[in-house]
């Protein structure tokens, strides 16, 4: 089937099988390998991308469902060589170690701050329900989100 999807502000038209998962389309067809696959039960969140601005799990969406929609992946956040404030906050607060869950974490928490500009620690932890990290114990991820929220306040 032919789909036209705007990925990171670029309109892309491809023929795909109906069963193609959005994440396989992103990684395989577009070679945007920053989006990862960490599980097969829609739980780990390593595949989180934004569709029409909202965080979703690209392993639980078909590429054909994204037809006509806008997809943003981790590769879209850095602008003109400047990290997105959430990326910068993760670096500043050591919110990543092996880096595998990181793109999903960043995309998810970017969406969090869109919904709630100044989340409390419990709100951050609850939001991260859909993202598993095995390295950091979440301590510094939570700090990074707090750091980003405090820095972007009023911005």
């Amino acid at each position: 089937m032919q789909v036209t999807i705007t990925v990171n502000n670029r309109s892309i038209t491809r023929d795909v099988e109906a069963r193609t998962l959005l994440v396989d389309f992103i990684r395989g067809e577009l070679a945007l390998t920053g989006t990862h696959v960490g599980c097969d039960t829609s739980q780990c969140g390593a595949c989180t991308v934004l569709v029409d601005g909202k965080s979703i799990k690209s392993c639980t969406m078909l590429a054909v469902e994204a037809d006509g929609h806008e997809v943003s992946t981790i590769e879209s956040l850095e602008k003109n060589g400047e990290l997105h404030p959430m990326q910068a906050a993760f670096r500043e607060c050591h919110g990543l170690q092996c880096g595998f869950c990181t793109p999903g974490m960043v995309m998810s928490t970017v969406d969090l701050l869109q919904n709630n500009a100044n989340p409390s620690e419990p709100e951050i932890r609850e939001w991260l329900e859909g993202n598993i990290c095995r390295c950091t114990g979440y301590h510094n991820i939570v700090k990074a989100v707090q750091h980003c929220a405090s820095g972007t306040k009023g911005a």
Binding site: L32, R91, C98, V106
Partner: peptide, 12 residues
């Protein structure tokens, strides 16, 4: 190492 991981440029 963080810049490449944060921008999706890690190579796994």
């Amino acid at each position: 190492e963080d810049h490449r991981f944060l921008t999706g440029r890690g190579k796994y």
